[in-house]
Write a protein that binds this DNA or RNA. Structure first.
Lengths: 212, 212, 212, 212
DNA sequence: TATGAATGAGCCTTCATTCAT
DNA sequence: CATGAATGAAGGCTCATTCAT
């Protein structure tokens, strides 16, 4: 036989191990979210994803109870990636320029938002069902540990509530990303962010110099 | 027959000055947006607004080309209110505690978000059509002038790019509002915000103490 | 102008008084229910009705919250018609052959079921939502009054619980209709029904003959 | 590697004698139909049945061409059970109180309907495909023989068309069951049924008194 | 033979927007 | 100007049935 049915048409009804299919759908979802469908018109996300994955509508609902839940998975998946560098730095025992790491996080977020605006909006500016966990919790906790590490290393001073500081810092990164998205001038906003972070984490009370 | 059905209905057809009608609709929209029907359930927004305003569906579209555009108007209207205190302070010649004013702005946003979550979400976390102006631009410019005023008054130091600082500060307020919304602990987050702002606007280069 | 737009094409977006449109939809529903769509395949009833009525899907939902509710309206509408002869007989003061009237009711139901089987099935053999009123209540009450009238006229004897007797009689009519539907032999089953009814309403206690 | 994943799963693949499997599925279906999930909500019937039977979806379709056909089998199975008492009575040569047996049939149907409403609805008020045999045929024929037996025993009189009488009697039982289901008052409706049956099967022509 | 992942037509609405009156 | 009935594309999801393994 000359035509292998697999390569010929549609390759319909491909039977995949559950995990594989699931990954396929997640990957397709990320691709769809990133393929900025110019314009902000509502998209039938589920339809787009299954089409991209070469699956049928029903298949989607075998693996995810709703679009929202899929979004949750994608979100945490990408947040994991996003925070990987910080996690790595926290895991080894070498000294690090913690401030620089924080600013690089911001830059990474900015660049991602710039490359895939729809994606970014969907992931971070989509109303979550009220009872769902805060997707940023993880980010906050990692950033928290970074702040503590910096403090321990003597790089940071005056941080009293690491978690709170981290939360607002993360919010700041999003603000920068959104601003670059709508107004450009990447270096201007990233620069300002860097300056603010420095002020915040290197705070030296005016009188402390005297006290010493 | 002398009385026909047309007269019976006539009283519902109120002919109002265009501006009045428009204001009525906007006011009704704000009321509807605030009447948080507890939860994320879909609402027939347009229907709810015209019903609240005592107008007909078609009337809505006489004054606003679309629901989104109405949202835009409401947004800027409320942002106007939000920034009114700062504008007032900028307008008179008395001395002001500018830092305190900024923190109070944050508190106002937090409290509004807490009192009317749906309203807040609709106004700030609803995807705007890509070509629409940044609704925060105004806020940024006012905050910018506050920073400059504070600098002129000798209260703030080290701010080099007022507009950029203002932009991130505004973003910070939203972060705080969202955090309080999802995690409570109003005073914790507001306090952290206050501390960060202070660090940012009162930045004193380490050596400045010596300089004095 | 030669072509009146009304007669020309589609007559789209016809604006009708609410009552008229409602009636139109009900009439269309009855027509659709009667147009035995050969085969028992599920039909998208709402779609069929609006198409028949020349209206759009959304229009249906302006007038009825669901297909079930429309069915309820149609049902009571047709039950009204069905019971009209009995009501008429009860309303005038002339003597009547009540037994004959009852049998004629049965025949009318049979003939209707035979002429419009789907219609009949939908109206009487469609699971009603558990909390809905019994659609036969009205039929029962009318038949009840007929039994009492027959008793008062000395035509019927021995009926102790008119309502109960009426309920089962009505059920009997449906049984006959269903049987004719599936097995034919109209006169056989109607005849049997007539005989049974006669036994039931003319019950003469065995000893009564002696009493005479 | 000696153990492969195939062996791990192997135990789930139970190879059963075809008849056993079939019975398992039928039994499971009956259990599922009876486990009234309170209400009219849609159930994924096939899924529920195979899950209850511990089989796979595909297996279902090995034994039944469709859900409807399974329903048909269950129906006749339960009708068999339902009629067992009458069959038993017909089979032995002892004298019986035939009228009492008929009323007891009615009571059994009522109680079953009351205990398992969904079950009952599915079995008796579910539109059968037009070409399917009348599931009540069997019931009719048995009841017919009961009527004849009662007549032979001198208990019943005046029944001319046993089959027709039986058919309507069976219908009557269903009417009673449905009425009890929707209105309660079991004894009232069963009592009325008993009275009607008595009238019908003990009909004594007016002149019979003379004959005596 | 048994499995259960895959299918996809189809159902029941909803609601921003239009337009005949 | 005002009205509100009419529109219809979409959206989210189901589930009996099929078929690759």
């Amino acid at each position: 036989m000359v035509f292998d049915s697999k390569n010929a048409v549609a390759e319909r009804r491909m039977r995949l191990p559950a995990d594989t299919r699931r990954e396929q759908l997640i990957a397709a979802a990320i691709r769809v979210l990133r393929s900025d469908v110019h314009g902000d018109k509502q998209i039938n996300w589920v339809a787009a994803v299954v089409s991209e994955a070469g699956a049928a509508k029903g298949t989607f609902y075998r693996y995810f109870p709703s679009w929202e839940s899929m979004l949750g998975v994608v979100r945490s998946r990408l947040l994991d990636d996003f925070h990987a560098p910080l996690r790595a730095a926290l895991a080894d025992d070498n000294p690090h320029d913690w401030l620089k790491l924080i600013v690089e996080q911001c830059e990474r977020l900015v660049d991602d938002a710039f490359a895939y605006p729809v994606h970014h909006r969907m992931l971070f500016h989509y109303p979550l069902p009220g009872d769902s966990m805060d997707p940023e919790e993880m980010g906050t906790s990692i950033l928290s540990r970074v702040l503590r590490a910096g403090t321990d290393a003597g790089e940071f001073h005056g941080i009293t509530d690491c978690e709170a500081t981290a939360t607002l810092l993360l919010g700041g990164m999003h603000t920068v990303a959104d601003t670059v998205l709508s107004r450009g001038e990447r270096s201007r906003w990233v620069g300002e962010f860097a300056r603010q972070v420095e002020s915040i984490v290197r705070e030296t009370p005016v009188n402390s110099a005297v006290a010493r």
